[in-house]
Simulated assay, not measured.
Amino acid sequence: MKALLVFLVQISWAQVQVAFLEGPSQIGRFSHVAISYKGQWLHTHPYRGVELVSTVALGHMGVLTEVMVLNDRSEPSEKFVNEVLGKPYDHGYSWDSDGYYCSKLVGIILGLQPKPMTFDASIWPPSFQKLKGRPGISPDDVYLQLTKQGYRTRSFRPLCSKLFVF
């Protein structure tokens, strides 16, 4: 138990954390991503848009499996958070729209670069094919870009399995 408390204290002192969640998706490993802000998680919800939630509430978006700790980055500014809270979810996954999807929000905060999007026709509805080649970023892309920058994750699953009953 003492080691668990030390681990939690170390994570809470990190300047910024990025949470990666897995869900029932055939599209990639991660189905959702969020970023820490003042002890909560800033993310986008498909119906409520950009919001701040607890770790427990974030768990409704999928299984929290990885947390990446970025010690040399700061959490988003209070001004930015106040500007984006309540903004709508972008169901069209457009990098240029006023709305946000989860990885676009985190990508913008961390200064990550979008890449031309691809949509496997066997998985995605035909309406998404019109977005092929447009700039965007997925939760897997966020994970890969941060990993290439040298950041590493801490597996969250063993920690959660000891704290919560799944």
Rank of each mutant, 00 (worst) to 15 (best):
N71D: 14
E51P: 00
L131M: 12
K130N: 10
K104F: 04
A19R: 02
W124G: 10
L58A: 09
Q129L: 12
W13S: 11
R29W: 03
F119I: 08
K38C: 02
Q26A: 13
V18S: 04
K87F: 10
F119C: 09
I35N: 00
M61Y: 11
Q129M: 10
V67E: 08
V63C: 10
P24A: 13
D96A: 14
V106I: 02
G39K: 11
M1D: 12
A19D: 00
T55F: 09
F20S: 06
D96W: 08
Q149G: 10
Y37H: 07
V33P: 00
I137P: 03
V18H: 01
I11L: 15
K162V: 13
S127E: 15
F7V: 09
G28N: 06
R29N: 09
S25Q: 11
T65S: 12
L163I: 13
Y100K: 01
T147V: 07
S138G: 02
Y101C: 04
A19C: 07
L112G: 06
V81W: 03
T147S: 15
I35R: 01
G39T: 11
K2M: 10
D98M: 08
K148H: 14
T55P: 05
W13K: 15
H91D: 11
A19W: 04
G28D: 15
P46C: 04
P158F: 10
R157W: 08
S77I: 09
A3Y: 08
M68V: 00
Y100P: 01
L146Y: 06
H91R: 11
P135K: 09
V106H: 03
P46L: 06
Y143G: 00
L110A: 08
S161Y: 12
T65F: 08
Q40Y: 07
M117C: 11
V33T: 06
A34C: 03
L159W: 13
G136D: 00
I35W: 01
S31A: 15
F20P: 02
